[in-house]
């Protein structure tokens, strides 16, 4: 049994990890259902023994969140496309045309994300929405650290190739 009020560390973990978990879950099940997935994740955390979970808290949270999100997605039987970037982008970005270009580039990268093989896509999401280390990603995906490095490397190369291809197509069209 935990020896102190559970609220303390769970709420601390909540404030620390709610944003990355929401980012991660949103990419799998869409932002509407992400909140429920994250809520379930933390509900599970409430019943855990702090001492057991804490040493690998982040990996634990993302593993649970991932399982929950995949369940939800399975029920929906469809992959939520990541590419629907909101029209409203952060307004503290550089001037209008630069921001526009940036938004366009971001849209392409995210669009390309959905063409990746499942494992690679998962590694990318864990890395860039959850900011997990290779070690943690390996724990979540049940693979080795070097394989994580390889997955990410391959994924990023593929993303860039996709984007460059689209760039060229756009270029050709505009001529």
């Amino acid at each position: 049994m935990p020896s102190e009020p559970t609220s303390h560390w769970v709420l601390l973990a909540l404030s620390r990890y709610e944003a990355p978990l929401l980012r991660y879950a949103s990419a799998i099940v869409g932002s509407a259902q992400a909140a429920d997935v994250v809520q379930d994740t933390f509900l599970r955390l409430c019943n855990q023994d702090r001492a057991a979970v804490e040493p690998h808290l982040r990996a634990w949270l993302f593993t649970v969140c991932r399982n929950r999100a995949l369940d939800v997605r399975r029920d929906k039987r469809q992959v939520e496309p990541v590419a629907e970037v909101d029209e409203v982008m952060a307004d503290n970005q550089p001037g209008p045309s630069e921001a526009l270009e940036r938004r366009e580039a971001m849209r392409r990268v995210l669009g390309a994300l959905d063409t990746l093989p499942e494992r690679q896509r998962e590694a990318v999401l864990l890395k860039f929405s959850g900011d997990l280390s290779y070690q943690e990603i390996a724990e979540v995906l049940g693979t080795s650290v070097s394989n994580v490095g390889f997955l990410l490397h391959t994924a990023l190369r593929a993303l860039r190739e996709q984007v460059e291809k689209k760039d060229r197509e756009a270029e050709r069209r505009s001529r």
């Binding site: 769970v10 709420l11 909540l14 709610e18 944003a19 929401l22 980012r23 991660y24 879950a25 949103s26 990419a27 932002s31 992400a34 909140a35 429920d36 994250v38 809520q39 933390f42 509900l43 409430c46 990541v82 629907e84 970037v85 909101d86 982008m89 952060a90 940036r102 580039a105 971001m106 849209r107 990268v109 995210l110 994300l113 990318v124 999401l125 860039f128 929405s129 900011d131 990023l156 993303l159 860039r160």
Partner: peptide, 25 residues
């Protein structure tokens, strides 16, 4: 590319739990 992924993924996700879920927790 890394920066765009980070920013792009953050862009469309809510930053914090809605009040309903937070209350449950």
């Amino acid at each position: 590319t890394a920066e765009m992924l980070r920013e792009g993924l953050a862009e469309r996700a809510p930053k914090e739990l809605p009040a309903k879920q937070r209350k449950v927790l």
